[in-house]
Amino acid sequence: MTTRADRERRVQDMAHGDHLCLAFADDAEQRRVVTAYVSAGLELGERVLYFADRRDPREVLSWFGSAGADPQRALASGQLRVTTAEESYLAAGSFDAEALARALRQEVRDSLTAGYRGFRVSGEMGWALRHVPGTDQLERYERRVTEVFAGQPASAICQYDARRFGPHALDAFDRCHPGAVEMDELYSAPGLRLVPGFRAGQRSLRVVGTVDYRATDALAAALETTLDWSGDVWVDMSALEFIDLAGVRALAHAAGRLPADRRLHVVDLAPLLCQVVGMVGWDETPSLIVTARETAS
C-alpha cells in the first residue's frame, strides 16, 4: 500500500518526471507553492508554462516578481509564459485531453530544442467545475500527463482548490496523480512532524513520528490550528510511531472544542490506542471518531 508519506513531496524536492497534485485550501498556500515551483524552474534554466484560471495572470506574475525572480525578462525571452486555460487549450470551447497531452509533449521537445534545460508546467484546474464540454476526460488527461512526462526533463503541478472541488472530486483527481505536493509543516522537530494536507479529499493533519510528553504541546497547537478549518478535521495516524495518553487526550480535547456540527476523525490509529481511548472514557466524546489501523498482526 502506498501511504501519503510515500507519495507526498515538498515543492523544493521536486524532480524531473514528477506530476503532482496540489490541493490547497487557502490562497497563501497556493501562492507559496506556485511561486517556489516557477521561480526554481526559471533559476534552473527550464522553460515554464502557467495556465491561470481564477487568478488574473498579472496577479500571478506579481507573485513571482515579489519573490525575487524577474518575470518580465523571462516573459520577453519566452522562458516564461503565463496565460489562461480559456485563451489556450479551452479556446475552442471544449476540452480535448489527447490534444493537450500531445501539445505538452511538443512543448517539452521544443523547450529542449531551444536550449532550455527542462520544462515545467502548472495549471489552475477550476475550469473543470464550469461544465466545459470534454471535462469528463480530465481524469484520463491527468493519467496521460504522467505518461508523457515520465523519463523526461519535465514536471507538472496541477492545482485544485479544495474550497471549490468537493472531497469526492478532489480525491478522484488526486488519485490521477502519482504524487501530491506536501504542505508546509505546522511543526517539525527530530522525531515528529505535523503536516497538513488532504486525505481522501478531506483536509487532514498527518502525524509522522512520536508524540510523547515533549510533543504534547506541539500536537495541541497544531490541532488548535485545524479548528479554524472549515468542516470536519481528519487526523491521519498512518505514520504515527508512538503516542502517549496526554497526546490522545489532546485529540479528545480538540474534538471537544469543535462546534456541534463538526467532527474530528482520527484515522489509521493502532488498535491498542483505540482501546485506550475507550479506557479513559474519551469514546464518549461525540465529536471524536476513531478508526483503527488495519494491521497484519
Binding site: D244, L245, A246, R249, A252, G256, V276, M279, V280, G281, W282, E284, T285
Partner: peptide
C-alpha cells in the same frame, strides 16, 4: 478520572493495560 481533566488518566489506563 474525569475525561475532561488535563491530568490523571495515565495510571488509570496503566491499571487497565
Amino acid at each position: 478520572p474525569d475525561p475532561a481533566r488535563r491530568r490523571g488518566h495515565g495510571l488509570w489506563a496503566v491499571r487497565q493495560l
